[in-house]
Design a protein around this nucleic acid. Sequence first.
RNA 1: GGGGAAGUGGCGAAAUGGCAGACGCGCAUGCCUUAGGAGCAUGUGCCUUAACAGGCGUGUGGGUUCGACUCCCACCUUCCCCA
Length: 834
Amino acid sequence: MTTTGKSRPDSDGGDARGNVDRYVPAAIEKKWQTQWESDGIYEASDYIEGKENYFSLVMFPYPSGDIHMGHWFQYSGSDAYARFKRMQGYNVLHPQGFDSFGLPAENAAIERGADPRKWTYSNIDNSRRQFREMGASYDWSRELVTSDPEYYKWNQYWFLQFYKNGLAYRENGQANWCPKDQTTLANEQVKDGVCERCGTTVTRRAMPQWFFAITKYADELLDMDDLDWPEKIKMMQRNWIGRSTGTTIGFDVSEYVAGEQIETFTTRIDTVFGVTFVVLAPEHPLVMKLTQPDQKDVVQAYVENASRQTEIDRTSTEREKTGVATGAYCVNPMNGERVPVLVGDYVLATYGTGAVMGVPAHDERDFVFAKKYDLEIRVVVAPPDWNEEELEEAWISPGIQVNSGEFNGMSSIDAKDAIANDIESNNWGRRTITYHLRDWLISRQRYWGTPIPIIYCDDCGTVPVPEEDLPVKLPENVIFEADGRSPLTKDSNFLNTVCPQCGKPSKRETDTLDTFVCSSWYHLRFASPNSGQSPLNDDQVRAWVPVAAYQGGSEHAVMHLLYSRFFNKALRDLKFVDFDEPYTKLTNQGMLTKNGGKISKRSNPLPPDPVVEQHGADTLRCYLMFLGPWDQGGDWSDSGINGIKRWLNRIWDLAQRDYSVLGGSVSDSAERDLSRIANATSQRVIADMNVFKFNTSIAALMEFTTALMRAHENGNVSVESWRSGVERLLLHAAPLAPHIAEELWQRTGHIGSIHMEMNPSYDESVITADVITLAVQVQGKLRDQIEVPADIDQESAIQAAKMATNVVRHLEGMQIIKEIYVPGRLVNIVVKPF
RNA sequence: GGGGAAGUGGCGAAAUGGCAGACGCGCAUGCCUUAGGAGCAUGUGCCUUAACAGGCGUGUGGGUUCGACUCCCACCUUCCCCA
């Protein structure tokens, strides 16, 4: 414990400063948290006369047990921003809730026998407590918990709308399977071949799965020109969608299999005359049909071996590319040549057509492959000054077509089009657009999620649950076993039902929805939280959405943020919303680390509660904001927190100083100086808060704090200037340190909450000083500084600069060849020896 | 391998073409104190110097400019994303 809590009879804060009690955060923070809540000052009205609505949303947490220091970092910043916007006169909606479906609850059930519902809701209670201790300005009246039936009912409703409109479908497919979590994963949830959540190597498994048709929106999702988002996130989404334009062309194999051809996709159709082999994925349906008898054993063994490898291994650039010949040949339609067909495991059946044309001269991978297997390397796009010599490495840049029949002499850029036209007119293939993006796999073979509202009837087939029967509730008291089967498949009360169409006994779907469905539309529900009979209230949605400012981590770049955009567009086309994008402006907070590593409860713990207990919530909030730029994150260290504590202590002391000692000997210049720094501080703080630069906002406020203390000690400012200075300091500090600002606001005689006040205004004309310091350089090196009137003209400034003592020395024996004056900043004199 | 971001005192950082190191930590000296993990004051990039002053300095090497942490080129290192 610190000594701050102990009462001491005299010395500090006493005597001339007006006998003030010490700053004890614990004594004021709880009090104001309770007061704010009972006054409901952060509850947003949908309309306030004369105020513009501003929806400032921060990504809601998964309630894993504790609000950890990373959460404090994220939520302190977003709360400070929301508070700042409120004080700029906006009608701000800043809600909070819990993304409470998901694997950890269920794993806790399997590992420790905890009931997922109890485990989750007790975590939520704890998280609510910690959010309150943070002093965050959330509108708790709009809180939502995604595992509540009132919420997930609408997930089911959206699913049904999507299903009816062809945006949700079920298909047999190879799914990513996590053997540990016993569930399927979307591509986005597989990182480096392992499960994003638990790190287990992902395998593939064939099973019927539900999908959302996100690829229908691939092109529209690429249009992000109007989004005020970090360029990095846009780039990641573009890469993830991975649109590439090219040509599909068929290589005839009818001499082996009647009427068949190998379809290949390429973005470099200009190199098609350089094809010297074709490679099939081991899973390609033509592999066995084409393989010649003497190659059967080799190919079979190769295919079997490939099936045991992960995709990551197979496509790794570290690994040498391997392949085996099938003994068959296919025909290049462009020149009628027969080229060998090989099988190679670096070609994946799931991408493109599952076959690639090999052009060793113009593709690095093919080049290496051809060298290894001694295949022809034929140049068809000539590098500049090429004279038929062999290439040292693949030439992948544009060039001039050679060995390309009628296209010889054309630039390869033009040839792309010309050859594609030729192929299309001969019906050998077609222009094709491919995407890396796959449809969103939403099925999870898990219990703790939203049941998919579908019933399977022997007679009627797949039947959607009627909307009036929603929600399909998750059963309680189910059996958990780590056997790869969802508890829902073993709960006969849940599983067995009757067909809504024919009334015959039928089975429910036992898959639950990916939890990213919950977070794809939660912002809409925050805007219209109380619509019991409909998912949304149109007026409320229109009042608040799209979200003006959205804050969250960049780890959601290709999952949540892409799904949300898709959801919004789908809901727009189904006439539920009338805007194109859900989040207008996005800001990423950086990651908070400890000793350079990720903070984790087990291996690298950093619990916030002890810090709050020792220093108070305001100190912790400000310290986290002061570490560095919010969008860059930072590394936690205990050492700096005292600086912030000292600053808050100084504010505490300063705001309560006895100002009756002032006013006796007011100096005009001291008044002007204080006014100048006061206005300059507001200008800096307002500009910085607007762009989430909390660190420099705090630095400006610290400087202002020091200036106020100096003014008081010198005793030469008026009571009015002093009081308005203190007021200004408290108002600017309020978004960052809400409790101490509120307490001091009250103690300095104000009625009502400081958080309902407006930011102080500033006058730019006051900020400019009448006398300024100019830097004087000779040859660009600083030699002296001069005090001059602020409105000095160029000629006088240069005159004065030349007379500065230390400048004279450097001008001796030199002739001046150039003089530069940067108004208000510096004079630079360029010289050379006579 | 491709794409992106970053590299500044002992430390967190500021400055995005104009006085590098604001603000804070730490450290040093002094004041106050019975006491200090409290408070206040002063100092604090490196080198030379008694001082005035000078030299060097923002990962490395070039370039543009009167002037470069900032812009351009090449390279090194770290982190992130993708393969």
